[in-house]
Nucleic acid binder design. Structure first.
Lengths: 233, 233
DNA sequence: GAGTGGTCTAGACCACTCA
DNA sequence: GAGTGGTCTAGACCACTCC
């Protein structure tokens, strides 16, 4: 295999990827060191290093000092999903985005919400419910609790003008989050809002965010039947 | 802010991240160029470049040539889901793993499968169905199509001895994949196997893999009600 | 101890994009 | 055209880990 005269780290990454794909280097095998590859590809070791680091990040190879670089036995082991704002999600589908603020009230949290957020029964939360629309059709039902202790400014936020998701992004950065999916049956209320039958199978996405161990928000998003969440690796 | 005498790209990344988190640089603002930052941090431009590229990849900043680097208005968050082998998934829950090979036959693909894999109607595929068990209770139903043109060795594979997922990992690396989730209603067959009611709401995970534009496998995995797929960021 | 990847430097040129 | 990030180089030293 003759390398192209002009090598970039992308070319090298592609070539190594090809060799792994075509089983020139099989899973578990040790591949040549950076210096050897740099010589073969006629480039600097840093360039090979960059290519290999990329491949390691995507899970195709595993690297350890002294031990060298091996083709991963269990290739890709993680999927990355981008979490867009609902607006972006809808507009990416080429539809006009709109939302309706269904309710907004300060309230004590139900037990379930308390437990998930790790708060006491006397914590004051803001409860917001929204219906997101794509091309004027129901797209997503959102039920959100915001911890007013962590984000006091939310008390005065105008959620008619800006939806809570976008407002929070601009006003309350978070340090870590928990994100999950499950399948559920639509409640009577969800069914009516999303214009689907009651007890239909719906995809639910739950998201919790914290800023330095202080819970910020818990949101439950309900998608109508047929919705897919997809990612490519 | 005095930089540490010993700067690494991690320190620089952390410091820039901190400034964005503390709104020293607000969303949408232009941040100093690489040369300026290199001067401030007392390091080479390449080091600053690496830190900024990392931040761009994680969505915290947006970079354009000539225009410079800006704090992202809507930081794109990514959720990373670990995709373990079913065996690992079950054993991680502390349950004994076992599976039953329900069927295995060479067949022409149904239209839907043809379309998803981008194959013609005369492609020869291997159709495999499995039930995975955790502590002898149904855990997951798997319906898999394997492209024999891409993986001829699958014809002779012993899927009683090793499940197709693990066999493929060892014998057919893939270059890219598509993962997706959706909610569906259980079919009569799925219901019986998973020991749940018919038309119950189930979480379905679909996975397609390719090796250099050649489809390898399409698999549909059906989880019983209540199953959650969760990740922390 | 020795071998391998991890990171950094100083400088260079290129590619894109804005004005 | 000019400014900014994107990439590459050649060399260096460090950090980890296997033997």
């Amino acid at each position: 295999m003759k390398p192209t005269s002009r090598s970039s780290y992308r070319d090298i990454r592609a070539e190594i990827s090809r060799r792994i794909g075509e089983r020139v280097w099989v899973p578990g095998a040790l591949i040549p060191g950076e210096e050897v590859l740099a010589l073969e590809f006629g480039c600097a070791r840093a360039t090979v290093n960059r290519a290999l680091q990329d491949l390691a990040r995507s899970g195709l190879v595993e690297r350890r000092r002294k031990a060298g670089t091996r083709v991963a036995l269990h290739p890709v082991r993680e999927a990355r999903f981008v979490i867009p704002l609902v607006r972006q999600e809808v507009e990416a589908r080429g539809a006009a985005y709109r939302y309706r603020l269904l309710s907004r009230e300060t309230a004590l949290p139900p037990e379930l919400v308390q437990a998930r957020l790790g708060l006491g029964p006397d914590a004051e939360l803001l409860h917001v419910r929204l219906l997101h629309l794509a091309a004027n059709a129901p797209y997503l039902y959102e039920d959100r609790w915001i911890n007013l202790d962590a984000v006091p400014a939310a008390r005065e936020a105008d959620f008619e003008a800006e939806n809570p998701n976008e407002w929070l992004v601009g006003h309350a950065p978070f340090s870590h989050a928990e994100y999950g999916f499950l399948a559920a049956r639509s409640s009577a209320e969800e069914a009516e809002l999303l214009q689907i039958p009651v007890a239909e199978s719906v995809l639910v996405s739950e998201r919790l965010t914290w800023l330095l161990d202080k819970p910020i928000t818990l949101v439950r998003m309900v998608y109508p039947p047929g919705h897919r969440i997809v990612t490519r690796l």
